[in-house]
Amino acid sequence: MATFKDFRNAVKPNWCPGCGDFSVQAAIQRAAANVGYEPHELAVISGIGCSGRISGYINSYGFHGIHGRALPIAQGLKMANKDLKVIASGGDGDGFAIGMGHTIHAIRRNIDITYIVMDNQIYGLTKGQTSPRSAAGFVTKSTPGGAIEPSLKPLEVALTSGATFVAQGFSTDIKELTALIEAGLNHKGFSFINVFSPCVTYNKVNTYDWFKENLTKLSDVEGYDHTDRSLAMQTVMEKEGLVTGIIYHNQETTSYQEKVTGYSELPLTDIDISLSEEQFDQLVKEFM
């Protein structure tokens, strides 16, 4: 059986020292080992940005695509080979700005993959512009007078888009984050995990200390029930999204693949793709 060390490779990440993404990388490696994957059974598909580099830092199949499109690539891959374990990942710009359309539709489509967003509320790789996750008033190079637009609320968006698994973690708490990713990987459907992963270089507001002060663990909230969607919505709104834990989990869900008429029991990669003459004639006859 593979251990988390088997998911490590020799590539040194180009993230800044202290970046929250290191812990997300470690949590993914641990979770993958804990749920019993072998490295070659896992594919990590990522977008563009600092966090998008993560697919190159895990010893698994990895695809670093184009900005905002990790999710469609990941969904296509899963449709091709449903035996493969697929994680899509990227930053808040990737998933909530340029790729927001895909995020909402991937959530409601419910293909069995796990999406991990490293949310640092800023554009890092382009050196410090506002993100859709930046709070109103946040001063950046592109918002010198403070951000005018309100921050996008990914948990609320996910819940209203028909999500079947929503969780949020904080990169410092690797133990909780690992457990959340494990739960996401075990979920039979689309799992969405937003992770607060501070940018130590460009975000001087949403720092490690700031999150420690402001985050509430849902496990500490009396009576919280993550199978209750209305309660999830209410709690997320009350706490302004600053919670960690499993926010909502619908264990009764059926994934997209299980609903597709005629979809092969075997992975599509394993089926014989040639048509018999009889099959071909059957198709051709309709045009006569």
């Binding site: 469609p72 449709m79 909402i104």
Partner: peptide, 20 residues
């Protein structure tokens, strides 16, 4: 798909997986 960007990139993902 939700748009043609998703259509093309999803097809790339599936080809990467090994399905025409």
């Amino acid at each position: 798909t939700e748009d043609e960007i998703a259509a093309a990139t999803m097809a790339i993902g599936a080809n990467y997986g090994g399905v025409r």
